[in-house]
Structures are given as C-alpha cells and as structure tokens.
Design a protein around this nucleic acid. Structure first.
Length: 271
DNA sequence: AGGTTGACCTGGACGC
DNA sequence: TGCGTCCAGGTCAACC
C-alpha cells in the first residue's frame, strides 16, 4: 500500500492524535510474522511508555517513547502493503486482521490492522536513533543522489526501489519520477549522465512533495488515520495507465517488468 | 558483493 | 452465483 508520502501522511495523522499519551495496555494477535521483535518484548517495552513524537523514516513509522526509570525506546511500524494505523474509541469493533492494540491514557486505542500481514512491528531500546536502511529522498542533495548510483549495473527503476540505497520510494513514485525526468526505467543506473541524475533528483523531490501535500495516493483502500483518502492518484501520469495515451505525446504507454515489478512508461517521452 | 527471483499473504476484479 | 485466475502501494532469503 504505502510509500513515502502515504507513510508520512499516516505518521502525521497519528502524531496529531496520540502525541503525549501514555500506553497503558498492549494486546498482540500472536501471528508470528507480524512481529520482528518478539511480542513479549514489544509488550514489555511499550507498556507504561509515553509517546513523545510520531514521525516517518523511509517507509517506517517511528514512535519515540519516554519511560520513567527506563531507557528511551522506539516503536517501529512498517505498513507493508496493506497495513493501517487507526485511532478509535474502544467501543468501536476491531476490524478483521487486527494484530496489535495499544490502549492509551485518553481512553482511545491505537490499532494496527493488516490483512496481508506484510507489515512488521518492532521495538528498539536505548539512545541509538533509527535512521533507516538508506538515504532520505526528500532531503538528499543532488550531488549525494547521483553518487548513490555510481558503478551500479542494475536498472535505474530497480535502484530507486532498493531501500538500502534510497529509502521511501516504491513502485508508484519510481515510475512517476522516471516519467517526469524522461528516463527509461531499464536504463542502467551507473550509466546515466550527471545531468540526467540531476533531472531525476528534481523530479523525484517534486513528485514526493506534491504527493505529501495531497495526502498521498489512494489507489485501492489506502486511507489516513482518520479514514480520509489521499488525492495524488489524480496526478498519476503513468502508474496504472498501461495501454492508455501518454499525457504529453499521446502515444500508448507500455507495460514491462523491471526488478520484478510492473512498470509503465512512455516509449516516446522516456529515453 | 551486487543483482535477480520467488515466496510470503489476503482480497478484489475479471472472465467463464 | 460461483469458481478459477491474476494482480496489488513491499520486503527478504536464497540463489547466481
């Protein structure tokens, strides 16, 4: 489901609702693959903690926790493809596929719901701050950005999706930024010119900023913490538009597979 | 080490 | 209506 703009929208929405609350009780579903730390460790770390801040790092939602008489900690939520974080009154029935419920000091519940179970919950304790696996696309400079792809033999689309290079970009924003930069998805990352990489850097930052402003892309069921859909899907120029005319030149958009993912591009506008 | 592929899951859309 | 097939915003282990 969610890439950087969607995760940022969720993190901001959750922050506005739970910041400053204390976690009084924690329930977990017992579905093992949902939990990257053990459920025992998650319950022990979260119970009694105060949520200081909710923010995004890459595609991960990070909750900074303060705990009286204990080391600070962080609660990491990765939404996978279908994960959602909901803040609800306790009398509202739990949706199907609810995997964790945090009872908060204001009486509400923070719920993690994930039908496909590709999402992951984990905790970190101590003062080390989570920085994610790669570079942050919204703040990386053009110079750092082009340096990331030096000597890389893989396709630029696959490189954009590789979270240990750049974290936060997924299938939608990879295709959308490559279209806006006029670059073919299968071009070898290490062979792009400095000028092309500078253009791609600009296109990516612009597309991410606009998507964040519009609350992300609601392609199927993605909604923010309040159940509100995003609107960036109205700005998709290639994603999910294979076979339709290119918005710029009118030729038919092509669908190929790159890095194991469906990829759409314009054979005329992208070189 | 860098790069590629398939497995992990459920549910919605589509065709017959 | 129902059943089968395909597809989906993401990782990650296991290969080459």
């Amino acid at each position: 489901m969610p890439e950087l703009p969607e995760v940022e929208t969720v993190a901001n929405g959750v922050d506005a609702r739970v910041r400053g609350r204390r976690i009084q009780r924690v329930w977990t579903s017992g579905k093992p693959q949902t939990f990257k730390s053990t459920e025992t460790e998650i319950v022990a770390t979260l119970t009694g903690a105060r949520i200081e801040l909710v923010r995004r790092v890459g595609k991960t939602i990070v909750m900074d926790l303060l705990r009286t008489g204990r080391k600070p900690a962080q609660f990491l939520v990765h939404l996978g493809m279908t994960g959602r974080l909901l803040v609800s009154q306790p009398e509202v029935p739990w949706p199907a596929h609810t995997h964790a419920v945090l009872s908060l000091s204001d009486g509400r519940e923070l719920r993690f719901v994930d039908p496909r179970r590709f999402g992951r919950l984990s905790v970190l304790t101590g003062t080390a701050v989570y920085h994610g696996p790669g570079k942050e696309p919204t703040t990386v400079s053009a110079d750092e950005f082009s340096h990331l792809f030096k000597g890389r033999r893989l396709a630029i689309k696959a490189a954009l999706l590789n979270q240990s290079i750049l974290h936060g970009v997924g299938n939608i924003y990879a295709d959308e930024s490559l279209f806006r930069a006029g670059i073919r998805p299968r071009r070898q990352a290490g062979k792009l010119t400095r000028a092309q990489l500078a253009t791609l850097h600009g296109a990516l930052q612009q597309v991410l900023a606009q998507a964040i402003e519009l609350g992300g892309s609601s392609v199927s069921d993605y909604v923010d913490a309040d159940g509100v859909r995003g609107f960036f899907q109205l700005e998709h120029k290639v994603y999910s538009r294979a076979g339709q005319p290119c918005i710029r030149c009118g030729s038919v958009l092509k669908k190929i597979i790159v890095g194991g993912r469906t990829t759409v591009y314009c054979p005329i506008c992208q070189h």
